[in-house]
Write a protein that binds this DNA or RNA. Structure first.
Length: 323
DNA sequence: TGCCCATGGTAAT
DNA sequence: TTACCCTGGGCAG
């Protein structure tokens, strides 16, 4: 799934192309019964908290979406991609091999001077291509919700949560979430309070959305390595300074993720190693999905363990984990 | 073509 | 702790 950075990017995409527009809401797949509650209404606000997306309508109700592990949004229409999205997509240049989504390269993006039909997928992997068919394009795959304006369309596939909720319910959801660096100005203090309440291992605490919102399995493993922290240490046994450093690292990583659309966690590399890491999406992390491969710092084989039914990767030497 | 896997989360046991 | 939901990409055969 898209970790927190992706959801903020999606919220931005809605803010640019859908907020202020009257929307036709439908469910091509037929599994979103709430569509009639917001069909024909105007989106007045779009925002993300952690991995949760909220599209607020002029009725006061909001569309609440959580992508889960499989979900994704497809955007299409007469869109002007902003610099952020263009920069991220320019590096991908990958083809999907399905439907009208095609690979994009720097050239094709640079040619987008005037609005043109483009298709952009934001979710498990971002990708973009030039839409060659008519507008709106036919839905691809199992589209739970289609949001259509005069010149833009967003298709939602495979979400864990997709519901229309009241103002009161939105407040309840937000109350239940830990701080998100892009939402909470005093996030560091809130994080510290919440994380120090639990004796659970720090490797679990970071994944707990009630303690800090937006971190997923990739950022969890990478952040612990970056901090050289043992994932199994009790969260509330760590010194405040270590916890604050974790939070600050998350703030920086999230900003980079939102800017680039990628979970870039390996700073401090030589330019050549950085190019190599970026070129291969399977080899761009310190430890994540590198089980058995030598640690980039010390050469010890990266260990794969299961923590709370999720795969946890770490370097036993750098992170001080003894058997 | 069919199986496995994945950046989540919740409900049931 | 396990079962289950959601979808599609990758890969072995």
């Amino acid at each position: 799934m898209p970790e927190g950075h992706s959801v903020h990017r999606i919220a931005g995409q809605f803010a640019r192309h859908f907020v202020g527009s009257k929307c036709r809401i439908s469910s091509p797949q037929g599994r979103f019964g709430d569509a009639t509650q917001i069909d024909g209404r105007t989106i007045v606000r779009s925002y993300a908290v952690g991995k949760h997306l909220f599209l607020e309508f002029d009725t006061g109700d909001s569309l609440h979406v959580h992508l889960g592990i499989f979900g994704a949004w497809d955007f299409a229409g007469a869109m002007q991609l902003d610099d952020t999205v263009s920069a991220a997509v320019g590096r991908m240049g990958q083809t999907s091999g399905r439907g009208t989504v095609v690979g994009a390269h720097e050239d094709s993006l640079a040619s987008i001077g005037a609005p043109r039909r483009t298709r952009l997928r934001m979710g498990e992997h971002d990708m973009v291509g030039v839409e060659t068919g008519t507008f709106p394009p036919d839905p691809i795959g199992q589209v739970r919700v289609r949001i259509l304006t005069a010149d833009a369309v967003a298709d939602l596939r495979g979400p864990t949560v997709c519901e229309v909720v009241s103002v009161v319910r939105v407040a309840e959801i937000l109350d239940d979430l830990g701080p998100d660096p892009l939402v909470d100005r005093k996030g560091e203090e809130r994080f510290l309070v919440r994380v120090k309440r639990t004796a659970t291992p720090i490797g679990r605490a970071l994944m707990n959305q009630k303690i800090v919102a937006g971190i997923g399995n990739v950022y969890r493993a990478e952040m612990l390595f970056r901090a050289r922290l043992n994932p199994f240490l009790a969260a509330n046994a760590l010194p405040d300074e270590s916890l604050r450093a974790l939070w600050r690292d998350w703030v920086g990583l999230l900003k980079i993720g939102v800017k680039t659309g990628q979970m870039l966690t390996m700073d401090g590399l030589t330019p050549a190693r950085k190019r190599a890491a970026l070129a291969n999406r399977d080899d761009r992390h310190w430890v994540y999905r590198r089980a058995g491969q030598p640690c980039r710092m010390c050469g010890t084989p990266i260990v794969l363990d299961i923590m709370e039914a999720r795969k946890l990767y770490f370097c036993p030497t750098c992170q001080g984990v003894t058997a």
